[in-house]
């Protein structure tokens, strides 16, 4: 890439021609090669190793490693944590984004900062917060003990920690999109007689559906992959409070490498699926965002060239 911007259209036309004549082609080749080698080393190779190691002792061992009761329990717990935290954060994210994007109120800046908190706090600290609150020595510890309620070293703690680390994703996706779209459509809906619910279901949510889906995908990926915060509150009780990432660590520490890799391959597969879904949804979400921004910018004074109607209708 040339570091100097062409000064005039003429220069910009001349530049590629010169680049073609001069023997400079090795520079982009070298850079591309470096980038690919780096990717291979830190991304493709580890990913390949996960699957190779997982299948080292054959496919039947692979399956039996996954069908082992503790592994199944870990998968189940991971799914439970995701199944609770995704809908919770979906509702929270939509309400927070709705409030921030469509209304003016005191403490708005504070709310935006608070939403980002899980991004800035180390997951270990996030886990510790819950131990300090609900642990036996924690603030609510004695009260919980009296009522025979267990949060730390139990499923509720794992769910709480997962909810905490994943709550920014949906809100963060929706806030800029909703802000760009403005309040006009909601006002128009209300003027046409739509109730708050009708406006939410018929106008607001359909307008942000791709951003919402994108946020959900990210939330889900993080919820299933979270290690730090969950590790602190879990207590590592086999078959009870181990999520998949924790189970993988235990297997690895016990030198049960192949089983550990087998479980890791499940998470890796999930990551690949997430990646594909993300690419598809991201394209849609960017289109929606750009449309909203373009509309806000030029206010539609120019006739927009006809485009194929969206197929999602």
């Amino acid at each position: 890439m040339s570091a100097v911007l062409p000064a005039s259209p003429a220069a910009s036309i001349a530049a590629p021609a010169r680049a073609r004549r001069e023997p400079l082609t090795w520079v982009p080749l070298l850079l591309t090669g470096l980038a690919l080698a780096y990717l291979a080393l830190v991304l493709f190779l580890p990913l390949a190793i996960v699957f190779i190691e997982a299948l080292r002792k054959g496919f039947s061992f692979y399956l039996s490693a996954l069908a082992e009761p503790d592994a199944l329990e870990a998968i189940k717990l991971t799914l439970i944590a995701a199944a609770i935290s995704v809908p919770l954060n979906l509702v929270f994210g939509v309400s927070a984004a709705w409030a921030i994007a469509k209304f003016e109120f005191r403490g708005k800046a504070l709310l935006i900062t608070l939403i980002d908190l899980p991004f800035s706090v180390s997951p270990v600290i996030a886990g510790l917060i819950f131990v300090l609150m609900f642990g036996r020595m924690g603030w609510f510890g004695p009260w919980l003990g009296e009522h025979d309620l267990k949060i730390i070293f139990a499923v509720p703690g794992i769910v709480l920690a997962t909810v905490f680390v994943t709550f920014p994703f949906v809100a963060r996706e929706l806030i800029p999109l909703m802000q760009a779209q403005g309040r006009d459509e909601e006002e128009a809906a209300a003027l046409l007689g739509a109730s708050g619910w009708q406006t939410l279901w018929r106008v607001t949510l359909p307008n942000v559906k791709w951003g919402l889906l994108y946020g959900v995908i990210l939330t889900n990926a993080r919820a299933m992959g979270e290690f730090g915060a969950v590790s602190v509150v879990s207590g590592h009780i086999r078959g009870e409070t181990n999520t998949l990432p924790l189970h993988i660590e235990i297997l690895y520490n016990e030198y049960n490498f192949t089983a550990s890799y087998a479980c890791a391959s499940v998470l890796a597969l999930l990551a690949l699926l997430t990646l594909v879904a993300k690419v598809v949804v991201e394209a849609r979400q960017h289109a929606a965002m750009n449309a909203a921004l373009a509309e806000a910018r030029d206010l539609g004074t120019e006739p927009v060239p006809a485009r194929a109607p969206a197929k999602d209708k």
Partner: peptide, 21 residues
């Protein structure tokens, strides 16, 4: 309430529902 007033309102920037025909 806005919903009860039965006023027709036309916005400067149209405010058409973008995802509807």
């Amino acid at each position: 309430q806005v919903q009860e007033r039965r006023v027709g309102f036309v916005f400067q920037h149209y405010a058409l529902f973008r995802h509807m025909t």
